[in-house]
């Protein structure tokens, strides 16, 4: 009963334009930054290492190696209206849901194999 009410409350805040992606995929996230009066769109590209939560509180973590070989992770609220676009650049073949082990891998070891789909049958 209360679960139904919660779902109903959350519904108007849930976005339906989010592409299907999971941990291991390489994403390009465009999100709005508000600086006083001005707003601009910034892009952030990296590997999604985790998806967390459910409902309006769902988040995903994107990790990239910034200049100077420093690992940077950003956690985005999945349904935030500030996210203008999520583009899936590459699908990764991974065997777990949370790729926190990537934090301890450097350089070539931190690569993820691309998910190859069988001919003619593109994975949706």
């Amino acid at each position: 009963m209360s679960d139904q009410i919660m779902r109903k409350v959350e519904k108007p805040y849930l976005r339906d334009d989010i592409p299907d992606f999971k941990a291991g995929d390489t994403l390009k996230v465009s999100y709005k930054i508000i600086e006083g009066e001005k707003t601009r769109v910034q892009q952030y590209q990296g590997i999604c290492i985790a998806r967390d939560g459910s409902g309006t509180g769902a988040t995903f973590t994107v990790r990239k190696i910034a200049s100077g070989n420093i690992g940077v992770e950003q956690i985005f609220p999945l349904h935030s209206p500030l996210i203008t676009n999520i583009e899936v650049l590459r699908r990764g073949r991974v065997r777990r849901a949370k790729l926190y082990f990537l934090r301890h891998k450097i350089g070539k070891a931190a690569r993820i194999k691309e998910l190859r789909t069988t001919k003619g049958k593109a994975k949706s």
């Binding site: 209360s2 009410i5 919660m6 409350v9 959350e10 805040y13 709005k32 508000i34 409902g55 309006t56 509180g57 609220p77 349904h79 935030s80 209206p81 500030l82």
Partner: peptide, 14 residues
């Protein structure tokens, strides 16, 4: 009390 959740404002803050 029914429960807790997150909503977004028009400015986009949680």
């Amino acid at each position: 009390k029914i429960g807790m959740t997150t909503i977004f404002t028009e400015e986009g803050t949680e």
